[in-house]
Nucleic acid binder design. Structure first.
Lengths: 230, 230
DNA sequence: CATTGTGAAGCGTTTCACAGCC
DNA sequence: GGCTGTGAAACGCTTCACAATG
């Protein structure tokens, strides 16, 4: 029951939804619910039930026909699949507005990603304290990554410094990067980058607004990779 | 050449990439480049050339065979398609860490989304100034939305208040919402919601890290909706 | 003759529909 | 009887490959 060596490959689209399910299931567990059906979970996640069942089936057959899924067990399995059975300390590069907000936002630590360090280049920022962390110099990055076993770096620098930040992270040994700068990063093979561009999100909304204004006015758009129209 | 009444429907996946192209093209224009091929643009955007051509073909036939695309004209067309021929003021609900960072981050205004207002419930925050904006009371939301013609709201509140924030935004007349709270929002039909959950992004990275650790170690994962492995 | 624009093939994701099982 | 698990159909997106063309 525990630990197949080579796990099934889970489709990316499913991987992107598992955290959502996990959040909902953890909330349900806390609220004292201990069984849930694919219908119930689908409702809470804003997706359809067949999708929930398909998604969960990639983890294994953890439900009971005629009954549903045991919440606690699903939580355990999803955690395991996502690699959340231990914490992943992250290091934040850039202690400006966004870096400070990220460091100060408790939600990261709560969900398994404690801030293991925050670095910057600006002497005015170094040694200030944000989110309970002393800001350190970029040069300390390798030491921080080594000592805290950091695998994930977060880039919260201005665009112009983002590529350099990525280079530093990679050299320090980080293998996954969450990039908030609106720049396409070049990284060596084997390093995973995800990009979150807030302006892009707004521009996608703008597209739909504009469509509503010019055309039918009741043309409710379908949800994209991450959007929803309920 | 200008203003077909009912535009082609553009696939969501393409809509999500147009802002990226736009950014790159605007940068190129500024750098004095005035022609670009699908290959060149693809390179800069980190995608393949066929995709660029297909994407651009949804806008119309704006290239020249054997030559390429005129940068300035493409910029103009993408802007128009995304509804970026005018600004979209946004209103931010929640003046905590994230709300302050968003308000203080100049990038929004620069890219066509000036902060038209920021509201909160906490008396300690009201009348403080963040990002050049005086924080106002949630009750002022309808007035702000009306006077500034705000169509897009940004939710930067704690999870517990997010649904209420959405309700206030919708009642005030906002029709698009960018939600940073890790909660599924219920909104009436005709309102578009996009969700950005930072912890979800990290969990997706964690999945790939974990896979690398358990399995092959050289199983470079394909890019998901928004990730990349270069 | 380099490069676009695009049918058609390939592939991944979603949804359907129902057999299997508690 | 109710709900899961899953083949198969349907759909949308990506990539190929090449005819069209300035």
């Amino acid at each position: 029951m525990a630990g197949q060596r080579t796990r099934r490959r889970i489709p990316e689209a499913t991987v992107a939804r598992l955290p959502e399910y996990l959040k909902i299931l953890a909330d349900q567990a806390e609220a004292g619910v201990d069984r849930i059906s694919s219908d119930g979970l689908a409702e809470l996640a804003g997706v359809n039930a067949a999708k929930v069942r398909k998604d969960l089936s990639y983890l294994g057959s953890y439900g009971t026909r005629g009954v549903g899924y045991e919440v606690a067990y699903l939580v355990y399995q999803i955690r395991r699949e996502l690699g959340l059975d231990h914490d992943w300390p992250v290091v934040i590069v850039g202690a400006g507005n966004l870096g400070q907000a990220l460091a100060g936002y408790g939600g990261f630590g709560e969900r398994g990603f404690p801030v293991g360090g925050i670095v910057d280049l600006d002497p005015a920022k170094i040694d200030t304290v944000v989110g309970g962390q002393r800001v350190r110099h970029l040069d300390d990055l390798p030491a921080i990554v080594q000592s805290r076993q950091v695998a994930i770096g977060v880039i919260a620098t201005p665009s112009a410094s983002a590529q350099s930040a990525a280079d530093h992270l990679v050299r320090a040994g980080v293998t996954s990067i969450l990039n908030f700068a609106p720049v396409v990063l070049a990284v060596p093979p084997g390093v995973t980058v995800r990009k979150v561009d807030l302006a892009v999100e707004l521009q996608i909304l703008s597209y739909h607004e504009q469509r509503r204004a010019t055309n039918g006015l009741r043309a409710v758009p379908a949800d994209g990779a991450r959007g929803a129209t309920a």
